[in-house]
Structures are given as structure tokens and as C-alpha cells.
Design a protein around this nucleic acid. Sequence first.
DNA 1: CTCCATCGTTGACAACCTCCACGATACCGA
DNA 2: TCGGTATCGTGGAGGTTGTCAACGATGGAG
Lengths: 146, 146
Amino acid sequence: MEVHMTRPLADDLGFLLSRASGQVARVTNAALAEHGLRVRQYSVLVLACDAPDGLSQRELATQLALDPSQVVLLVDELAAAGLVQRQAPETDRRTRLVVATAEGCRVREAAGRDADAALETPLRLLGDAERDRLRDMLTRIWTATG
Amino acid sequence: MEVHMTRPLADDLGFLLSRASGQVARVTNAALAEHGLRVRQYSVLVLACDAPDGLSQRELATQLALDPSQVVLLVDELAAAGLVQRQAPETDRRTRLVVATAEGCRVREAAGRDADAALETPLRLLGDAERDRLRDMLTRIWTATG
DNA sequence: CTCCATCGTTGACAACCTCCACGATACCGA
DNA sequence: TCGGTATCGTGGAGGTTGTCAACGATGGAG
């Protein structure tokens, strides 16, 4: 007979993921606070800086797995801080191209350094090879959904 | 000279953790919805069922890494659904012992089955050994903070 | 030109997190 | 015994997030 083994909470992958993710988000937010950023805004800024010609808010929403309505507020705040700009392309006037300013890229680099340094605390028990393996597994969890 | 490699967002462990955790929480919540539960309530119910003599809300908060004020509402909802009870121990009348009802344990098992089945979708690209390894790494991320 | 899809935007609502404050109770040292 | 201190549960405020539904503006297909 096939029985269902009820797993203790400490072995539940969903719980462990949520707890670790929350912990990492906490320390990252604390590190980014000095730069006036939260993780959400920072992730938008990173994508904007890495895209030479900017990207539409739709692309931002897709790559960040966020609802488009959330991207509006994040871009609003970043634009108010002078870190990104909204540009209206001639090709498709429905879209608004989000491009990072020079100041935005400077802030992104400084904030990224602090965020990475802060991440060392929760990740200090993981070697480089393990971190690569963790990246790989988390990416596969994401792609498994389609 | 030591330069700082700015990592693309798709390789940022914080982002990957948040995305995977969110995805898993989404499918788990969908599976638990048929039982009238959310992941938060389910995690409380699991701890209550696994503790033969119940546990205080303080212990719940500690083990779940939640603020005690959140536990109040979760226990309220579970108690209203008849899945747990609050008992006043004679030893320390400040604490309220949260114990699962028989119905609570039944629901926990059924909900757990559905939740595990739903987890198969995002985890289908990970073998058993990899899941163990993932559990281990996530636990170490948690313990690295103290 | 008309119908339909897409994009940005706004608003609403529930859930969650963080912090602070309070009353009740326990504990400990004078 | 008493008085200060600490802990527990509870409630509330404020801010962030996740989800969904609508709307106007624009683009594209027939």
C-alpha cells in the first residue's frame, strides 16, 4: 500500500524557498536603502542600464515576472529620482521606452556593489560552485512552468 | 586592479530566489484554495498537527520566521474554520497553546497531498538528489543569518 | 474603414511585512 | 513581600506587494 509521507515543515521546499527569499530580500533592501532604492526598483534599473536603447514597460514586466501595472509605479519613482527617462518612440507610439540616465547607471553600480556585499552574509555558507548550482536549479524551477 | 563585475539580472541569486519562491507560492496557493487555505495558514496548521501537545504562538512565530502579530490573525482564521483550538495552559497563563483538531489534521493531510502534487509542476526538472541538495542550500542560507 | 489586439495607466482590493503600544502575566532581586 | 523588568498575546498604523478589471490611445488585419 502506498502511503503519503507528510513532510515536516523544515523540509518543505516551498517553505524553505519563501524563508530564504524573504531573508535575502530583507538584507538586500537594507543595503539598497542608502541609495534610496528597493529591490523592485533596483531590478528595473538594472534592466534599463543593461539595455543600450532602453526597453518597453511591457518587456520590463515580462522579464521581471510582474504585472504591467506595477511597472508603471516603479518607473514613476525611478523617473522622479532622475535615474531613468520615458521616451516615446516613433515606431510604436503605444509603448514608452524606459532608458537609464547616466546618473541612473552610476547609482546602479554603487547600489549593486552594496547589494552584493550584503548578500555575502546569507550566502557565506555556499561555495562558488554551489551558488552556480543554485542559480541553475532556481532557473529550472522557473522554466518548468512555461 | 580589482573590478566589480555587474551581474545580469537573470544571474542574480536574489532575483532568482524571489521569482522561484513566488512561482511556487502561486501554484501552492492555487492547490490549497480548494481546502480554503493559504500557504501561511497551511504552515501554521502543519506545525500544530506535528506538535502533539500544541505550541505557543511565540513558538509558531519563531519557527515560521513571522511577526507574532501575524500569527494572531492566522490562528484566528484557523480557529474560526475549526481546524485548531486555543488552549490556556495552567503553567504560564500568558501563553495560548495552539492545538490542531482532528478535523484540522484531516484537512492538513488532504491539503498536503494536493500541495505536493501541485509542486510537481515547478519541480519537475529537478531530480530527488537535486531537491535534497536544494533543501540543504536553502537551509544554510537561513542559518547563515542567525 | 472596421474590428480586434496591444500598451500604458488607473483604481480597487486582499495579503503581507514592520514597527509600536498596551494589558496581562511571569520572573527575579532587594 | 514587593517592585522592577521581561515576556506573551493582541491591536493598530503605514507601507509594499500581488491580482484583477477597466479605460483611452494606438497599431494591425481584413
